[in-house]
């Protein structure tokens, strides 16, 4: 994970602070830069804008686009629909958790993959399904996971 300095946020804050309603555009830009919005950065933004931290926090948690957890470069997900379930989606889930050393929703140490599960993606005849970003992989066997991960 790239380390950041709070002062790096200053140019972004300065660019927007004079505009009315600048908080959301600032949060967008900061998240673009860091990939997420850690607590201390939120506190820093609140201080610089002269508004309570609670206001920044309330906005960050209200909008689904903002995240307080660092996300990986790619999101990898396993479908947990019925057909995938019986075709071994659980095994894929366990294998991925092991390989990436994460729990569901977590991100691998190298910051590359965020892992989660999703509801039926409607490709049941190709079960089980693994998705990386928008790429769909069908009939995935546990031994193929390494190959898939290596493509990214």
């Amino acid at each position: 994970m790239e380390k950041y300095h709070l002062r790096d946020m200053l140019p972004i804050i300065e660019e927007y602070e004079k505009k009315a309603g600048s908080l959301i555009p600032i949060l967008h830009e900061v998240q673009k830069k860091l990939g997420y919005l850690p607590k201390e950065v939120q506190e820093f933004i609140a201080e610089e804008l002269g508004i309570p931290y609670s206001q920044v926090y309330s906005v960050v948690t209200f909008y689904s686009f903002f995240t307080m957890e660092p996300k990986g470069d790619y999101t990898i997900s396993v479908c947990t629909g019925t057909a995938c379930h019986v075709k071994g989606a659980d095994e894929l889930t366990e294998e991925l958790k092991d390989r990436l050393n994460v729990e569901e929703g977590g991100t691998s140490d190298d910051g590359k993959f965020t892992f989660n599960t999703k509801r039926c993606v409607g490709a049941c005849s190709k079960a089980p399904i693994v998705m990386v970003g928008d790429d769909v992989y069908g009939k995935v066997q546990t031994e193929e996971l390494e190959d898939i991960l290596n493509r990214y």
Binding site: A20, L23, I24, H28, V59, F62, Y63, F65, F66
Partner: peptide, 28 residues
């Protein structure tokens, strides 16, 4: 004209929620 980008909340399509969002608040 200024462009404002939403942040993933369906309710912001409701006009008063949208205005709150432009003001930099929760879109309620």
């Amino acid at each position: 004209v200024e462009l404002r980008v939403g942040a993933g909340a369906f309710v912001c399509g409701e006009e008063t929620a949208l205005l709150s969002s432009i003001e930099g608040k929760q879109g309620r």
